[in-house]
Amino acid sequence: MTKDRELKEYRVPSDLSEVQRASADILDFLKTVPLSEGGLFDLRLCLEEALINAMKYGNRLRPEVPVEVGVEIDSDEVRIRVKDQGPGFDVAQLADCTQSDNLLRTRGRGVYLIRKLMDRAEYNACGNELLMVKRLPKRRG
């Protein structure tokens, strides 16, 4: 069965002042998806967390090195790929930010939130590309 599918790609300079603009552009592309206000909040938050991590830890805030973002929509889900040009990291090494010893830490919550709020969040083998998936409610009729 063929399903309507839309794809858009973005290249975002690794400059934290670009996060809000890129996020607004991408959310504008996603404005027709049937997500609740809360679902859109989650999508925006995860997208911005992924962009910030890619800019800071992957591309080391070098504005000339872009973060590549691919956004794909079909009738079932939204898929967002965020790729940086860094060497990647081992996501298994991240400390659990919800452990009582770690609650006062000021880092490490971005990836945790992405994993909790998206329906799927997977890194590639070297850890420099993240795929985030949010399932869409079934349309009636």
Partner: peptide, 16 residues
């Protein structure tokens, strides 16, 4: 209306 992990971290910092 919106807070991200940097906002949460800032509040943690102030609490500390």
């Amino acid at each position: 209306s919106y807070i991200d992990s940097s906002g949460l971290a800032t509040l943690v910092e102030i609490l500390k």
